[in-house]
Design a binder for these strands. Structure first.
Length: 372
DNA sequence: CGGCTTTGACCCGCGC
DNA sequence: GCGCGGGTCAAAGCCG
């Protein structure tokens, strides 16, 4: 949408003294501004689905063979060993710059991950935002397809508020009463968050999203935006919010599992690399990300199209110590382990940035109890 | 006109 | 039980 271009986020959003009342224009992304986005084909919406998506940013080919990174988190390769009974969620932290402090914090003990995230990234330690991260847990490595399907269906059903229309007659002054949840708790879907050091809040991950809500975040000048996958039957949602203390820190939380392949991303991608040196602990790792995406998207777009076609991740012998979900995803993609990747070269040339993935704690006590 | 964002109201869960 | 805050709905408006 040109709307977003009319509202350049970089100019209107991050003044320290004048916090925006809204993300305006619904959070255009660098990809939007770049006129990039990964949607090759039309699909209404328009410009937000350009040529370069978040998955591109990650350097992940998405086609009929390779699921998206997110799908992969949620849909572990069949050939992989089953995930641990209490597998944890991954949170990814993207950087515009190298933030050693953040990385170090993320490497600390998992019990305080949320807090560490804040501290490490200089985010506000206010309680209001901490719980947000607490939801970034879960089980990315869903054990089997049946559960995936079930889960996805539940998402849709719940998100649509049992729409069915069987409560059409329950109107108050303005809106129909929403059906009671009965005694069933709202199903919590698998979630994981990407903490991004970026001026862009709505990362284009290759899927099509529709913004359905925005809420002010307590103790934060920045609102939280809610998006839902526009694909029919797919109830995947994501929340995007910006750190109150550090305006360049964006937390994108995905919830649910896509029930469909990524509608876009037919092209080659730029690739990204895991920096083995960043595996300072078994629970975190660093992935490099193209820095230029945040600075010169328009100029680099053509380059993105033609650069490293494969996803590359360098790892060390400590691979077995990587987070299980991470392993689940990357072990299925041998190409990730090519140390001679051009992506790595890009990184070495300062074109890539750090992405940190870190496991998070279980989302709910109930889940923990269920495992027992 | 279709798709999307905006935005106020509403629902729900949770803590006190 | 009550209030708060998160999450969602849906009408209205915008835009290509």
């Amino acid at each position: 949408m040109e709307k977003k271009q009319e509202n350049p986020m970089a100019n209107m959003r991050f003044p320290d003294d004048i916090p925006p009342s809204t993300f305006g224009g619904g959070g255009g992304s660098i990809f939007d501004m770049a006129g990039t986005s990964c949607e090759g084909s039309g699909g209404g919406g328009g410009d937000k689905w350009g040529s370069l998506g978040f998955m591109d940013l990650l350097g992940i080919h998405q086609d009929f063979v390779a699921p998206s990174l997110f799908d992969s988190f949620n849909h572990p390769p069949v050939l992989l060993p089953p995930p641990p009974p209490s597998s944890v969620e991954l949170a990814a932290v993207f950087h515009d710059h190298h933030h050693d402090v953040l990385l170090n914090k993320l490497d600390t003990n998992n019990n305080n991950k949320q807090q560490n995230l804040h501290q490490g990234s200089h985010l506000s330690p206010v309680a209001s935002t901490v719980p947000e991260y607490s939801e970034v847990l879960n089980n990315p490595a869903t054990p089997n397809s049946s559960s995936i399907s079930s889960s996805s269906n539940e998402v849709t059903a719940n998100d649509e508020r049992n729409k069915a229309g069987d409560h059409d007659n329950e109107y108050k002054t303005k809106k129909p009463l929403k059906p009671k949840k009965n005694n069933q708790k709202r199903q919590k879907q698998p979630r994981f968050a990407f903490i991004t050091k970026s001026e862009i809040d709505h990362l284009d991950d290759g899927y099509r999203w529709r913004k359905y809500g925005q809420k002010a975040v307590k103790n934060s000048p920045y609102p939280r935006s809610y998006y839902r996958c526009t694909t029919a039957g797919c109830g995947v949602k994501k929340r995007v919010e910006r750190s109150s203390d550090e305006s360049t820190t964006v937390v994108t939380t995905y919830e649910g599992q896509h029930t469909h392949p990524c509608p876009i991303m037919p092209r080659g991608t730029i690739g990204f690399a895991i920096d083995s040196s960043s595996f300072s602990s078994p629970s975190s790792f660093v992935v490099t990300q193209p820095r230029y995406l945040h600075h010169q998207p328009q100029q680099l777009q053509p380059y993105v199209y033609t650069s490293s076609p494969s996803l590359n991740i360098t790892t060390t012998s400590s691979n077995s110590n990587h987070h299980p979900s991470f392993n689940a995803f990357f072990q299925d993609k041998p190409r990730f382990n090519n140390p001679n990747s051009s992506a790595l070269a890009l990184r070495d040339h300062g074109l890539l940035q750090d992405i940190v993935l870190t496991p998070t704690r279980r989302e709910t006590k109930e889940e923990e109890e269920e495992d027992q």
